[in-house]
């Protein structure tokens, strides 16, 4: 794409995001513009960069392969004046624990969540799914296994652009690997099978 193409495409992308409101996948964007997924990622990245100026009121949220245009968190008080949003979401200890595990350690199956929490997590997972704070998708490698990951809604509650912006993200991301390396005698099949 030429520079001129890029810029006009950015305008089209902005219009697309504005109208859609809902998250759009890179694949859809690629399809829309008849470009490759790689090119769509670059396009999104450039657009995201242009939004970083403090005078812009919007920001792009990115989660796995989905993108959503939203307002920047600092404008929240202003927006409150406009919208009567009565829907409040509180965090119970079980919800906090489950969300922490999924957020920091990445998408994982229920078996691993149960193992790390030490309790059966089916109820809390269904609860979080219903609230739209997590999503589940079929495992690419194992049949009949679902992987749970955090959703864009979750990011909105934290005011983060992407999950990697969580404090100390890098430290916790690899914590399971670190423990496995330090404890090779642990032959636990659940941990061995993590994604």
């Amino acid at each position: 794409m030429t520079e001129k193409d890029q810029l006009s495409r950015q305008g089209e992308l902005e219009a697309l995001f504005f109208l859609a409101g809902e998250p759009i996948s890179f694949k859809k964007i690629a399809n829309f513009f008849q470009i490759s997924v790689e090119e769509s990622k670059k396009l999104v990245e450039n657009f995201s960069y242009s939004l970083k100026d403090s005078e812009r009121g919007l920001v792009l949220l990115i989660n796995q392969d989905e993108v959503q245009l939203v307002t920047k968190p600092q404008f929240q008080p202003l927006i409150q004046k406009l919208i009567q949003e009565d829907f409040r979401e509180s965090l119970t200890p079980a919800a906090l624990e489950t969300l922490t595990i999924i957020a920091y350690l990445g998408s994982m199956p229920r078996s691993l969540i149960d193992y790390l929490r030490g309790v059966n997590s089916s109820y809390i997972l269904r609860n979080l799914l219903m609230r739209g704070l997590i999503e589940k998708k079929a495992s690419p490698s194992r049949v009949n296994v679902y992987l749970y990951q955090i959703s864009l809604e979750f990011l909105k509650h934290l005011g983060l652009d992407k999950i990697e912006d969580l404090p100390e993200y890098g430290k916790y991301r690899d914590i399971l690997k670190k423990f496995e390396i330090e404890n090779p005698e642990i032959k636990n099949p659940v941990v061995k099978n993590l994604v």
Binding site: K72, Q76, I83, R88, E89, S90, A103, L158, G159
Partner: peptide, 17 residues
Amino acid sequence: AKENIYRLWSEEPQMMN
């Protein structure tokens, strides 16, 4: 890690679409 998330959590979404 739980502390981090608890601190950042807002009962209403901070970003709107």
